[in-house]
Design a protein around this nucleic acid. Structure first.
Lengths: 342, 342
DNA sequence: CACTCAGCTGACAACGTTGTCCAGGGCCTA
DNA sequence: TAGGCCCTGGACAACGTTGTCAGCTGAGTG
């Protein structure tokens, strides 16, 4: 027991170490290290003996110690909003693939759109000394990351720019995408168009709103009070917002949904209505083709891949000024966005 | 440069250590450690001085060293098939939430259904000394994990049992779910029912097929050649399989889809047909309600949560025999499964 | 046969942290 | 005022690995 307290690492369950392997194989510690790392300069016979000892003992190198010694963890951190959101699955997977190609593991965390939780997660990852960080920011002040970045943790922000610090960023063209989507509705004859988006705190939400306003202004349409709803994407509130816009003597004839969750709820609301209402949503959704939903599609996997590749280029020494990469969006017409106003 | 070689950890970018903080605050090393870990026995005044030094230097504890010393990494590994698959997003998120509640981080990896890649990932996680592992197995031989488990890495398998070793397992009732779904079709008058599933190598695929056979046998129906297709879930092949079953003089009047990806393709195939064909799919899909798709729903989040809770119970010392937890599925009738044969 | 040289091997320190243990100082009590 | 005790602080070793460097062996050469 006292033994346990003295050697807390026995919690590993007394895993064999290189020392044990060395003793069993009758060689020196460093020779085991050489075999484990496939370094040159070991006779085939010695190597065989060491390998046998490794197999017999079930030895597995302790990467914690290795990391401590080498200074690189071969892991990167990804902090996103919600792993369960269909937008982040492919993004995360794409990041993982790039990491794998570079021999790195991926540590994942969801901020749940809570700035404090984001910071807590990011700092935990920094304490682990991840080599790099990919962050989909929830907060709007990332100065807490300055010492970390200065200390060498490469960081790339995704989907929304970092707050109050200058850093690499990869995002979709939210403004342009929304503008195109709304212009598409206008081109099909709509003038009274509603916009339902996420909280204005979120950068993409305001960018998309800005796109909406730009398209309306381009067409010389004055946006009326009540056509715009910004808030949570919680179904009940989105439903209420949509229904309010669709009521009254001069209801909107078309809706622009600011993200995939809003689109899903909007589809449900519109499905229960007699009068057809046009709809364009930002972000693609599975089966949207079967439901005939017109969307502004952004390629989540491409965003993730681009960000990760950028990160590894930094890790390999690229030290140019922070860059901003904006990926284009695509309008995918499927019917709902081509309905004429009634 | 020689300096760099001698002190490879300078790759951290010369991050300050506790020693640096101690020097700056004019206290001993251990005192800094105490402050960092909020241990008792430090005067408020000393604590303040240390804290100031920490902030000034931008010190962040190096968890690698901590882990090495303490023997616990406060992280768990999750190896699944594909993070981009909508089934695994919620599962992964649920695992993450439980981990978070226990103060642990989550390291994620996708096996892409490749046994070799699974093993590679799992062993990499073991080398990191994750405290525990949650694995959705791709391979069917997990004896390679025996030394790891013996060495104390708690392991829970999910969705499919481990191969050739005895371990904890949490899964959905694939057999019962499929049987219920097929029986549902039979109850609506179908006799010629097709089954399209994943590769027989995958446990859930064969369990669901077994459920199909059981339901058919219960109804005294002889399953004909050509009603069953097992293979990849790649859209083109699923499409070909479905079309083959729907052709000929005695086509099937209903389809049972073995997983969400098959269901999606099946819906696409059936959407292009005149004659209505009934469909029940295993796994729920977003917007399936709007498309009226009847499914056997399994609660991915519940599976993830259960597995993670089980894992942490193990980590906290539970050492009963390996357990098997089977979660029930739910039939959700939405129209497609209630169509009568034509 | 002595010498060189190359190729293997192992002793040792260091990575940054935490557990143990001891020293010193202040305070309280007798 | 002396004695004892508690509280705070620090020296030191250890966790398991890898880089450095020096020693050893055996073969080849003059």
């Amino acid at each position: 027991m006292a033994e346990t307290a003295r050697h807390p690492a026995s919690r590993y369950g007394n895993r064999p170490t290189m020392k044990d392997v060395a003793a069993r194989a009758g060689v020196g510690l460093k020779t085991v290290s050489r075999v484990v790392n496939s370094e040159a300069g070991v006779t085939p016979d010695t190597e065989r003996r060491v390998q046998e000892a490794i197999d017999a003992l079930g030895f597995r190198r302790n990467d914690s110690a290795r990391v401590l010694r080498k200074g690189r963890t071969a892991s990167i951190g990804l902090v996103l909003e919600d792993l369960a959101d269909p937008f982040y699955g492919p993004l995360s997977r794409a990041v993982e693939e790039v990491a794998r190609a570079h021999g790195a593991l991926l540590i994942n965390g969801s901020s749940a759109e809570d700035p404090e939780r984001e910071q807590e997660l990011v700092l935990a990852l920094c304490a682990r000394r991840v080599d790099g960080l990919i962050v989909i920011p929830a907060g709007d002040d990332h100065r807490y990351l300055e010492p970390e970045i200065k200390a060498g943790i490469a960081t790339v922000f995704v989907d929304r720019p970092a707050g109050r610090i200058d850093a690499d960023i990869v995002l979709s063209d939210s403004f342009g995408g929304a503008r195109e989507g709304v212009a598409h509705l206008i081109a099909h004859g709509h003038r009274r168009i509603g916009f339902i988006g996420d909280q204005p705190r979120i950068h993409t939400a305001t960018e998309r709103l800005r796109g909406y306003h730009a398209a309306m202004a381009d067409a010389g349409i004055t946006v009326r009070d009540g056509w715009v709803s910004l808030g949570t994407t919680e179904p009940a509130r989105v439903r209420a917002a949509a229904e309010a816009m669709l009521a009254g003597p001069e209801p909107v004839t078309a809706l622009f949904a600011g993200n995939n969750r809003v689109t899903v709820t909007a589809v449900r609301v519109l499905a229960g209505r007699e009068r057809p209402v046009a709809l364009v949503g930002f972000d693609d959704i599975e089966l949207a083709d079967l439901l005939g939903i017109t969307v502004i599609s952004q390629d989540a996997a491409a965003v993730g891949r681009t960000a990760a590749e950028h990160l590894f280029r930094r890790l390999e020494g690229a030290d140019h000024a922070p860059a901003r990469v904006e990926l284009p969006t695509t309008l995918v017409p499927r019917g709902s966005g081509e309905l004429r106003p009634v």
